[in-house]
């Protein structure tokens, strides 16, 4: 299986510093080979979009990056730290890597403000006042500061997802992972979440986004990755990826969703 190698032409926003390096990584669920010989390098400030059919291993791949899942073979290095069985490393990685889920995973028993300050206060040992200030700043940035005292259950899906993004940002992560952040949302709410993500991309955050929003991918992606059955099939600049897909599996997939 040959991955079509594309020599990555780094755009100006991208530094040469490597943020994530995955080398010959393999993962199994029991007997099922989910991820096969994955090699991937992500530089600081780079924005990667991952797409592919359902069950191709996209979620699993990014969950391996923040150690929510264990991999069995190969190496994953995040921000210079090798992921392994060392628990201290794992704790460190989780504070440096933010993640946004399809189902938001907000804490329903806490108010929005408490959702946002929990990590900074308990993990970063920030004072409550300072954490509140940071939280309000990020709520401002995702455009819902007036909802701070509500509970997640009282908000729309789009608002909840923006809170989830703000919650991750409050930990000042170096990398943000997004797993289909808009696929549980009604169409009219997708845009408000994507807008927030575009804003975030503007700030130079390193991002890996699993999504099927192709318009969004064209706007922000430095590169698009196509996965199928546990392989990274194709990796390319968005124009080339959408305009002139090389692999036939990519062509077939794109013809289905576009």
């Amino acid at each position: 299986m040959n991955e079509p190698q594309t020599t990555s032409q780094l755009a100006s926003a991208i530094s040469s510093e490597v943020m994530i390096e995955i080398v010959d990584m393999n993962k199994w669920y029991g007997q099922f080979h989910v991820l096969k010989d994955i090699n991937l390098t992500v530089h600081k400030g780079e924005r990667i979009v991952i797409c592919g059919p359902s069950g191709s291993g996209k979620s699993t791949l990014i969950r391996c990056v923040n150690a929510l899942e264990e991999h069995q073979e190969g190496q994953i290095t995040v921000d210079g730290i090798l992921l392994g069985k060392n628990l201290k490393n794992l704790d460190h990685i989780r504070t440096e890597v933010g993640m946004v889920f399809q189902n938001f995973n907000l804490f329903p028993h806490l108010t929005i403000l408490e959702n946002l300050t929990l990590g900074p206060v308990w993990v970063r040992k920030m004072s409550k006042a300072e954490a509140t200030e940071t939280a309000m700043m990020y709520l401002e940035r995702v455009k819902i500061p007036e909802q701070a005292d509500k509970y997640p259950g009282q908000m729309s899906g789009g608002q909840q997802q923006r809170v989830a993004i703000a919650r991750s940002l409050c930990m000042s992560p170096k990398i943000m992972l997004f797993d289909e952040p808009t696929s549980a949302l009604d169409p009219e709410m997708i845009k408000e979440v994507l807008d927030v993500m575009v804003d975030l991309a503007d700030t130079g955050m390193t991002m890996i986004v699993v999504t099927h929003e192709m318009g969004f991918a064209k706007t922000i992606a430095d590169e698009v990755i196509f996965m199928d059955e546990g392989d990274i099939v194709e990796r390319n600049k968005p124009e080339a990826f959408f305009g002139n897909p090389e692999h036939e599996r990519t062509q077939k997939f794109l013809s289905q969703i576009l």
Partner: peptide
């Protein structure tokens, strides 16, 4: 399961996750 995953991504360890996120909801 998403609740403990959410807790892990903001850096909470096992006891933090249990004590602050999972237990309070479960006890109710």
């Amino acid at each position: 399961k998403g609740q403990s995953e959410g807790a892990h991504t903001i850096g909470l360890g096992y006891w933090g996750t249990m004590g602050l996120i999972v237990m309070p909801q479960a006890l109710k």
